[in-house]
Amino acid sequence: MRILGIESSCDETGIAIYDDEKGLLAHQLYSQIKLHADYGGVVPELASRDHIRKTLPLIDAAFKEANCTAEDLDGIAFTAGPGLVGAILVGSSIGRSLAFGWDIPSVAVHHMEGHLLAPMLEDNKPEFPFVALLVSGGHTLLVEVKGIGQYQILGESVDDAAGEAFDKTAKLLGLDYPGGPLLAKLAEQGKSKRFVFPRPMTTKPGLDFSFSGLKTAAANTIREQGGVEKCDQQTKADIAHAFQTAVVDTLAIKCKRALKQTGINRLVIAGGVSANKDLREKFERIMQGMQGEVFYPRTEFCTDNGAMIAYAGMQRLKAKQYAPMDMKAYPRWPIDSLEAI
């Protein structure tokens, strides 16, 4: 079977073609970073309009890359949420319309399920059950995964997501958009222990997260140094290092708790923040110490992409969980409400 995947939940247009026997045949991605850079963040209306301009040309490019046509498809998968509702509507409308015109079924995919299953695109795939840490600009979730659609939320952020806190702190440091990766790069030059930030909610029982306080700690530190204009490059790097270390430590503490609580020794980390170098090194050490394994998607599949939507969609397509023509877009959509396969 062969499926076309469409991702349009935020500021990246992702298109992919996946074959359940041959694997990924095509992967096309367009990022809107330059479009939103002048505004310091994603402008939803501009994002939606750009998805309209880019989706069909990228589908054509994917067909050429895969050396196939619409006649070779068995279905179309599209992101139905969560995300920016206007952007989701673009991809879902195009996906359902093409499926109707080509007389093939369409499948609605949960964006975070796409991230959760992204490591399945690699040669070294995790077996069920596993614990998943989903960390992105909009979400921080700890999920116990017993199978596809069998998800129990163990913990989530009560305020800012980890990626959102990275971006906001980067902005405080005067870094360009998108700030998260730039902050991580700056942190590599930072010195340890000059600044120490709290590890929020780690002294209390439970698996929920809170990162807004870390952003406030960074803001206060910058202010104590005379403001970002008076901070030299080393001071900025030291603050970035302290912030990143606090985030990674917090995630690590919560994940260790989740693994012990569930008795599972396999951990999946996915989402944009999972590409962070320090985070990967930290979790490799932790899982070796716990005699377990950690799995990630390759770097290009950590951020939003069509490949993860195509893979997740293929699983739903095989289960004949087709999307109705009046399928809604969901700006919010609990992952534990999905139907099990």
Score class of each variant (00 low, 15 high):
Lys204Leu: 15
Ala240Gln: 02
Gly206Asp: 13
Leu207Val: 13
Pro205His: 13
Thr216Asp: 02
Ile239Met: 09
Lys204Arg: 15
Arg199Phe: 11
Gly213Leu: 04
Gln225Gly: 11
Phe197Ser: 09
Glu229His: 09
Ala218Thr: 07
Val228Arg: 05
Pro205Tyr: 11
Gly226Cys: 08
Thr202Trp: 06
Val196Trp: 10
Asp232Ala: 08
Leu207Asn: 12
Arg223Leu: 13
Gln234Gly: 06
Met201Gln: 08
Phe197Cys: 11
Phe243Pro: 02
Pro198Cys: 12
Gln234Ala: 11
Lys215Gln: 05
Thr221Leu: 12
Ser210Cys: 04
Gly213Arg: 00
Thr221Asn: 10
Asp238Val: 07
Phe197Met: 14
Val228Tyr: 03
Thr235His: 00
Ser212Ile: 03
Gly227Trp: 04
Gly227Phe: 05
Thr203Cys: 13
Glu224Leu: 15
Lys236Asn: 05
Lys230Val: 08
Thr216Ser: 10
Asp232Gln: 06
Ser212Cys: 07
Gln225Arg: 12
Ala219Phe: 10
Phe209Glu: 02
Phe209Tyr: 09
Cys231Tyr: 02
Arg223Val: 10
Thr216Leu: 03
Gln234Val: 02
Cys231Arg: 00
Arg223Gln: 14
Asp238Ser: 10
Gln233Cys: 07
Met201Tyr: 07
Lys236Pro: 01
His241Asn: 15
Lys204Gly: 12
Pro205Met: 12
Phe243Thr: 01
Asp208Thr: 09
Leu207Gly: 11
Lys215Gly: 01
Asp238Leu: 08
Val196His: 12
Ala218Asp: 07
Phe211Met: 04
Glu224Cys: 14
Ala240Met: 09
Lys215Glu: 04
Thr216Met: 09
Phe211Gln: 02
Lys236Thr: 07
Gln233Ser: 12
Leu207Tyr: 10
Thr202Val: 14
Lys236Ser: 04
Phe209Asp: 06
Phe209Thr: 00
Lys236Phe: 03
Lys215Phe: 05
Ser212Glu: 02
Cys231Leu: 15
Asn220Cys: 12
Asp238Arg: 01
Gln233Ala: 14
Ala240Thr: 04
Thr235Asn: 06
Ser210Thr: 06
Gly213Met: 03
Asp208Pro: 08
Phe211His: 03
Ile239Lys: 00
Thr202Lys: 09
Ala237Gln: 01
Leu214Lys: 04
Thr235Asp: 01
Gln234Asn: 08
Ile222Trp: 00
Ala218Ser: 14
Lys236Ile: 00
Phe197Glu: 06
Val228Gly: 01
His241Gln: 14
Asp238Ala: 11
Ala219Asp: 07
Gln233His: 11
Ala217Asp: 07
Ser212Asp: 05
Asp208Trp: 08
Ile239Ala: 05
Leu214Ile: 10
Thr203Ala: 15
Ala218Glu: 02
Ala218Phe: 08
Lys236Met: 09
Pro205Phe: 10
Thr221Met: 12
Lys230Pro: 01
Lys204Gln: 15
Leu207Ser: 12
Thr235Ser: 07
Leu207Pro: 10
Met201Asp: 04
Thr221Trp: 06
Arg223Glu: 14
Asp232Lys: 04
Ala218Leu: 11
Gly226Arg: 01
Thr221Ser: 15
Ser210Ile: 03
Ile239Glu: 02
Asp208Asn: 15
Pro200Phe: 02
Arg199Ala: 10
Thr202His: 10
Ala240Val: 00
Ala237Cys: 09
Ile222Asp: 00
Thr203Gln: 15
Cys231Trp: 05
Val196Glu: 15
Gln225Tyr: 08
Glu224Gly: 12
Gly227Glu: 04
Pro198His: 04
Pro205Ala: 13
Gly213Pro: 00
Val228Leu: 08
Phe211Val: 00
Lys236Ala: 03
Gln225Trp: 07
